[in-house]
């Protein structure tokens, strides 16, 4: 092989290596942007998480039809990025006939939770039971007193 032919072969090989081939030309492109996300934590009033509960999301412009769905994880948590619409987003978490609805006001600045359920303490609950029991006892005694009065007059 002459020197000229060797140079030609080398040039062809170099061109082949440097030229991007269609089969190996998948370029990776990334677009990054910030977005508002909502993190839900669903649990029963006993403190037990609502594991694998279904979540229905309603957008501000259409509170009747669901905007999206999701499922909570084992700890009753779910995170997702909202759409661009500002306003009141609604989230319903439900499982076997139990559930709750929460509303989130999304503004241009940040989402603000405006309504959610809160578990009562045992002290509050016992106080309410005691009040109802007191009312029932009063009702019972009132009825008994009236009955005794009626019997005495008869």
């Amino acid at each position: 092989m002459t020197l000229l032919s060797r140079l030609c072969a080398l040039t062809v090989c170099a061109a082949g290596c440097l030229t991007p081939l269609a089969a190996f030309s998948h370029a990776a492109l990334i677009e990054a942007e910030t977005a508002q996300a909502v993190r839900l934590h669903a649990f029963y009033d006993t403190g037990k998480p609502m594991s694998h509960a279904q979540v229905i999301i309603y957008a501000p412009d259409n509170p009747v039809s669901a905007w999206g769905q999701g499922v909570t994880d084992r700890d009753g948590r779910l995170e997702f990025v909202l759409g661009s619409e500002t306003g009141r987003w609604s989230f319903q978490v439900r499982q076997s006939g139990h559930g709750a609805m929460v509303h989130v006001d999304v503004t241009d600045d940040a989402p603000v939770v405006v309504a959610t359920g809160g578990a009562q303490s045992w002290g509050q609950r016992l106080l309410m039971v005691a009040l109802v029991a007191w009312g029932a006892l009063g009702t019972a005694l009132f009825a008994l007193t009236r009955r005794k009065g009626r019997d005495a007059s008869a």
Partner: peptide, 9 residues
């Protein structure tokens, strides 16, 4: 009524 009141509680 007394019985009803107590059982309601």
């Amino acid at each position: 009524i007394p019985r009803v009141a107590m059982l309601t509680t």
